[in-house]
Amino acid sequence: MNRVVEKEYFSEAVVKLVVEAPRIAKNRKAGHFVIVRVGQKGERIPLTIAGADIESGTITLIVQKVGVTSIKLSNLEEGEFITDVVGPLGEPTHIEKVGTVLACGGGVGVAPLLPIVEALKKAGNKVITVLAARTKELIILEEQMRMHSDEVVIMTDDGSYGKKGLVTNGMEEVIKREKVDLSVTVGPAVMMKYCTILTKKYDIPTVASLNTLMVDGTGMCGACRVTVGGKTKFVCVDGPEFDAFEVDFDEMLLRLNSYKPSETEAYETFQKKYRKA
C-alpha cells in the first residue's frame, strides 16, 4: 500500500500523483518504471517514473485517463492508497555525452521523457526538446522541460499553442537547422514510428522507450514482447528502451490493441458503475 501525498491536474485527462515509495525513490534511474495495481480486483499496469524525491521518499507518476485502471488511479485523492506499487523496473536509460540530443515527447509520453532529458542535460549534452499534443491543454511539464533543455519546441495539432503541426514537423525543422547526434522518442507507438521514419531518413541514431502491455513486469509472462532486430525481446527486462531503427512498430501497434474490444467493454461498464456512484 502506497499513499498518494500530492495530486495535481495537468488537464482534465492528465493527473500527476506524488506517491510514497521511499525505496523506489532511492534506487530509480531515468528510464525506470513501476507496476501498479489499484484495488484487489485491479489489473497490473506499467507506469514510467517521471521523477523522485529521495528526501521525502516519493516518486512522481503521471497518468492519462485512457482505461479502467488509469481512471481508478486518477480518482485517488491525497491521503488514499495505491494497492500495490513495485519497482523500479526495466533497464535504466543509457546516458552519455554525445553532443546534441533531440528529445521528442508526445502526449503523456512527455512524463517518462522528463527524467531522460534531465539526465542527458546533466551529462553535458545540448538538449533540444520537442513537446507535442493534440491541443494546448494536453501539453504537460513544459516548465520542467524548459529547466533542463537548451530549447523547447512546442507543437499542437490544432495550432492552439506553439506551432501548428505534428511532432515530426518540429523535429525536421531542428534537424535541417543543426547537426543532431541522437534522438530520443517517447509517446504513443504510432508517434514513435513516424519519429523513427524521419530520423532514419537523416540517419540520426534514435532510441525509443516502448510502452507495451505488461502483467508481472519482471520477465515472467512475455505479454510485453516485441520484435527488435528480428528477435523477440521483452520490454520489461530487456527494455523499455531500444534502438528505434530495429523495432517492429507495426507489430507493436497490433499487439497494443490485443484487448481493445474487451477493454472498451470494461471501460463502459466501469463508467456506468461510476456514474451511478
Binding site: T218, G219, M220, C221, G222, R225, V226, T227, T232, F234, V237, E251, L254, R255, N257, S258
Partner: peptide, 15 residues
C-alpha cells in the same frame, strides 16, 4: 522467469 518461445513465424500474433 522468462518463458521460452519457439521463434517460428507469427508467434507474436494476438491470442
Amino acid at each position: 522467469g522468462l518463458p521460452n518461445f519457439m521463434h517460428i513465424p507469427g508467434e507474436n500474433y494476438i491470442g
